[in-house]
Structure formats: structure tokens, C-alpha cells
Design a protein around this nucleic acid. Structure first.
Lengths: 213, 213
DNA sequence: TTTTTTCTAATGGTTTACCATGATTTTTAG
DNA sequence: CTAAAAATCATGGTAAACCATTAGAAAAAA
């Protein structure tokens, strides 16, 4: 029997998912948590095979959770079950080292298959996930959609944040003790890198990636 | 037996929810739909008591669905089950005339209670929903925050969306067949109403309220 | 140590955004 | 019907953003 712990911040979903997993052969739900921060304490007392977790959660996201677990519990398998279908989140998850990435719009059968496959030591990703990755390839292969946060320099990130916080170019220059011209250069470079045509595009990028709220 | 139809664009969630509802006394799940647009056809052949639907869905949102159903099927009850806790979506739902608004982080018991109450002809809203409404009161009682969506005219909303989509003033003017000056006036009024100092502020507002993605 | 990247900065020009103000028409609500 | 609200447009000005190009200095990588 595969020992499973479920994590989702939405109680109804959590409960429903537990019913679904309980209806699976060879699966035993030994815990359901509505807060990812509770997991570490849980793991102190229980032996778990696989964690099935949401990605977007308050306090500790599925990705941060994964990073934490991979260090402290290297044998633990992590399956993210999320509605995030964008290449950015997918890559983040892969980078963090998840064992599976399944979309909430998958079927029960697919989810079951994912758990099985992961327990045999393999990895599982929904087909749409692979398609999304293929459609927006990393720049190792292709220069199209730079998952650009990594391609931004620290200074650029700093300015991007300030722009998004509605500071004007001159205000940013003052704040950072650099000239207006320099800020303008950074803004221009940012817009090129992000492939947007105005500060609004920058702001949208920053918000989407959680750089600013 | 209360005849229930479940709608959610995420298959896993949909299936899990159906397990949850099937585990309820006096409830019969007579349909599960992963696309809200399929509902109308479904209702042609089946008699349904209550629709339990997600809010955020592609093609046809829970609110638009509600508006549609209230016209064509006035006896049908509609319960929104969503993770949207913000006053804007709540008010939109109430305005549309939903019979219940329950958060996905509610418990199974609460959901059960909600269904019961709705079937007796009453309405049900999660406690957090009521709190949220109280915390950001409408101007019938309070004149506090004029920067709400309701104080924007339809034209302003339209322009706000386009601004957020990175259209320039002249592009917007072309698109709407009005003069540049008019668009500028609207932009100015928008910024006053929203109490922001630039297009970025407008965009942030629009994004926060889900007007644009 | 070279090479590359990043950060810095300037020049000069174009476009767009922002502001104030006033005014007309159309639409909506009392 | 009439008053209010919403949508329309104009003028004229200031500030800010955007664009292209060049280039030196500092820091990081090869």
C-alpha cells in the first residue's frame, strides 16, 4: 500500500480529493493537511511514500515545499496537483525536483497512473504539461519565450520592482542614487528582454511572477 | 432526493466533488460537467434542483452562467463553490442572483448545510463571505472606498481593460471609434477614481479585480 | 588575464501620457 | 419632462516615457 498525504488549502477540495484517493487500489491516505507548513511536523511521526500537493498555497507554495522536502526527506516523492498550466510554473516545479506534475483538469485514471509510475521510481507529467513545455521551449533550444526572471540582472529586477510600484524614472534614479539616463537604459533593456511595449507590460510581468503585490 | 449537477472545469476536482456529494444523504448527483456551456443542453432533457458550479471557468463564468439560468430556468437553484473571496466577485455573484456562495476552503459539513438551506428556499453564504462584505461595505451604508469597480462606468471599464492590455491611447481611440481626446479624458477620470498616478496603477487595479489576465 | 556581462551615463529626438478646463450631446433616472 | 450622469471632443501645455546609439568603468566569468 502506498502511503499518501494530501495537501490543499481548500478544505472542500481536500476532503473530496481524499475520497478520490481512498477509492484507489493500493493507496492509503494517511493524512490530509490544509496548510503545507504542517507537513514537516507530520513527517516527524509518520512514514509517508508520496505527497500530493497543490501548488498555489498561502505561506508555503508547493514549489517551496518541494525544495524544503528534497533536502530533509530525499526519499519522499512529491506530486504536484495544480491548475497552473503555464510554462513558468512548470519549469519552476521541475527545477525544484518534483516527481510528478498533474493538472487538476486531468482524469482520475491519469492521477492513478501518475501515482503508480512515481512509486516505481519514474516521473510523471500530464501530457498538456509536456505540450506546454514544447510550445514554449527553454532557450537552450529556442530563443522564444525567455522564462526571463533568470535572465534579468539584479539591478534590472530592482528597477522592475520600482517601476511596478509606480515610481517614475526620476524617482527611481533618486532612490538608487544613479542618473535618470541609467534608469532609462535599464527600462529599455527590460522591455526588450520581456518583449513588452510599455511599463504596463513590465508591471504585468512583475505581478504575474510575484515580484510585487 | 435533491437532484444536483456539478460544474467545474477541472476534471479531478469535478470527480472528487462528485464523490463528496454522493456521500451526502438526500443528494443525488445526476450530472457532472466540465464545461459550463454544456449545461443548457443538459437541462433540456433533465430536471435538476440545484447547480453547484465553480466561478472561474473558461468560456462561461459562474456569474455569466447564473445570469443566463435565472432567465431561462427561474426555479433552478445555483450554488457557487469557489475560491474567490474578494468582495468584488461576491457582489457580482449576489447581483447575478446566486442562491449560495460557498468557499472551497469550507468543510463538507458546511457544504451540506448550504445545499439543505438552499433547498428550503433560503440563501446561504459562507461566513467569510459575509465578513468580507462587511469589511468592504457597499456605499449604501458607507461612502468609504470610491475606488471600487461599481463606480466605474461601462465605458471606463472598457478603456481600463484596453489600457491594461497595453493599448496606447491612440490605439484605443481607433478601436472604439472615438477621438484621442475622449480617451484621454476617460483615462484621467479613471486615475482620479482609482486614486492612482499612472497607467500602471490602473493596470494593477484591473489585474487585481480580474478584469484582465 | 582576457573576455563578457553588468552597470553606468550621455545625447538628441519622438511619442505618449498626464493635467486643467470648458463645452456639447446623448443617455439615464427621478 | 427635467435634472443628473455619462460620453463625447477640443485646446494647449508640461512632464514623462520611449527609442537608438554610443561608450566608459566595474564586476564576474572564462
Amino acid at each position: 500500500m502506498t502511503k499518501v498525504v494530501l495537501i490543499d488549502d481548500h478544505q472542500v477540495i481536500l476532503y473530496s480529493l481524499s475520497l478520490l484517493f481512498k477509492s484507489m487500489e493500493n493507496v492509503e491516505v494517511i493524512g490530509v493537511l490544509n496548510d503545507s507548513r504542517k507537513l514537516k511536523a507530520f513527517l516527524e511521526t509518520e512514514t509517508v511514500d508520496i505527497i500530493v500537493s497543490d501548488l498555489h498555497m498561502p505561506h508555503l507554495s508547493g514549489i517551496d515545499l518541494t525544495l524544503m522536502l528534497r533536502k530533509d526527506f530525499p526519499n519522499l516523492k512529491i506530486l504536484l496537483l495544480t491548475m497552473a498550466e503555464d510554462a513558468y510554473h512548470i519549469r519552476e516545479a521541475l527545477r525544484a525536483g518534483v516527481h510528478g506534475y498533474v493538472l487538476k483538469r486531468a482524469t482520475k485514471e491519469e492521477l492513478e497512473k501518475a501515482v503508480e509510475k512515481i512509486m516505481t521510481g519514474k516521473k510523471y507529467y500530464s501530457e498538456a504539461v509536456i505540450d506546454e513545455l514544447a510550445a514554449s521551449p527553454d532557450d537552450d533550444f529556442n530563443n522564444s519565450k525567455p522564462e526571463t526572471i533568470e535572465h534579468l540582472t539584479t539591478r534590472e529586477l530592482e528597477i522592475l520592482k520600482l517601476v511596478t510600484m509606480e515610481y517614475s524614472t526620476s524617482e527611481i534614479a533618486e532612490k538608487l542614487f544613479i542618473s535618470v539616463a541609467t534608469v532609462e537604459t535599464h527600462r529599455g533593456n527590460l522591455m526588450k528582454k520581456l518583449e513588452v511595449k510599455s511599463a504596463i507590460g513590465m508591471a504585468k510581468f512583475a505581478l504575474k511572477h510575484g515580484l510585487v503585490d
